[in-house]
């Protein structure tokens, strides 16, 4: 069961056992783990797992969770200005889902023996990353649509294979996330369609948003395969199921006809169907920008992180109050005796 004794089982030998025996035990554990992964079985929290596997999962799940909660900001930026009550309700529900997804993912990370507090501290200290895409600003209402269509579309392309990830709690969280995300992409597409078919000003707003979000969306799949440091090992462990470039291509192939149906263009003169490959060719990605934003030089890095820190600090007295109330009023079985 979640987090009960996660991270403590089977990682050390019993006291008094010789080093050689410990090594033999480790090897046996490793063999069981490898066989389970090879057989496409799920690894569960209390199973033995290599420390590197655990660390890699914590890194990836934390980054994913952080992305969900930082990702609330660019869209929340438009809740108070949403142009119709219907759009406002949709956007509020979407941003709420992102908080929920963050929660599911932090829970999954906690099963690996790392608390949410630790992860948030690392995020706030800038020691763990979130998706760079959220360091771009939402300048117009159309950006909300473009995020739904392109950013969520790219995220879904990335996330669907994670539903089969070798680590059980992560895979289960992703099943829930993906089920809920499908509305996110559709609402974005629908919002863009309304703009594209709307007034001249609305159409221009939609095109401008797509022009700005297209390339950063392609960067969301991560660096090209030959430069990706984590891909090979993550694939061997079946944390990851496809390479960055495979997923990026899949996304481009899906997005191009969708853009045509929207009546909007994609800002890439090299974009064309390649009969031979059976895929769309696309132009070179500006990786300098990617690395630069990742390093902290994006238009909103400071803003996003300081807003997050501020919310956390402002909420400290609330969290303390509730904890203190619980201490005063809680019986030994955790029931608040209110």
């Amino acid at each position: 069961m979640t987090a009960v004794t996660a991270g403590t089982t089977g990682t050390t030998g019993a006291p008094g056992v010789s080093d050689g025996a410990v090594a033999a035990t480790q090897a046996a554990y490793e063999a069981v783990f490898d066989a389970a992964v090879a057989a496409d079985e799920r690894i569960e929290p209390r199973d033995w797992m290599p420390e590197a596997y655990r660390a890699s999962l914590v890194r990836q799940i934390a980054q994913h969770a952080h992305s969900e909660i930082i990702g609330m900001q660019p869209e929340a930026n438009w809740i108070t200005r949403a142009p119709s009550l219907r759009r406002k309700a949709i956007l509020m529900a979407k941003v709420q889902d992102e908080a929920g997804h963050g929660l599911y993912l932090y829970s999954a990370a906690e099963t690996l023996g790392t608390s949410r507090d630790e992860l948030l501290d690392k995020l706030h200290a800038g020691r763990q990353k979130y998706s760079s895409i959220f360091n771009y600003p939402t300048l117009t209402w159309a950006d909300v649509g473009a995020i739904g269509w392109l950013v969520d579309g790219a995220a879904i392309t990335n996330q669907v294979p994670l539903c089969r990830c070798s680590y059980g709690p992560y895979a289960r969280a992703m099943v829930r996330v993906c089920k809920e995300e499908s509305f996110h992409q559709r609402q974005g597409y629908e919002a863009l369609l309304a703009l594209s078919n709307g007034t001249e000003a609305q159409h221009a707003m939609a095109q401008d948003a797509v022009d700005r979000w297209w390339w950063p969306s392609l960067m969301m799949f991560g660096p090209p395969d030959d430069e990706s440091t984590h891909t090979a090992q993550a694939m061997a462990w079946k944390i990851k199921r496809h390479t960055n470039d495979e997923l990026r291509q899949r996304f481009v192939d899906i997005a191009v006809p969708q853009a045509e149906a929207l009546g909007l263009t994609l800002p890439d003169p090299d974009l064309r169907w390649n009969e031979e490959r059976g895929h769309y060719d696309f132009g070179p990605i500006d990786w300098t920008e990617f690395w630069d934003v990742l390093k902290g030089n994006g238009p909103c890095n400071d803003q996003r992180l300081s807003k997050r820190r501020q919310a956390h600090e402002d909420g400290a007295w609330v969290r303390e109050a509730a904890a203190s109330y619980a201490e005063k009023h809680t019986g030994k079985h955790g029931e608040a005796q209110a």
Partner: peptide
Amino acid sequence: WAGAAPVLEEEV
């Protein structure tokens, strides 16, 4: 409050 609640559960 979106994005600024004291704790994630309270956002929801």
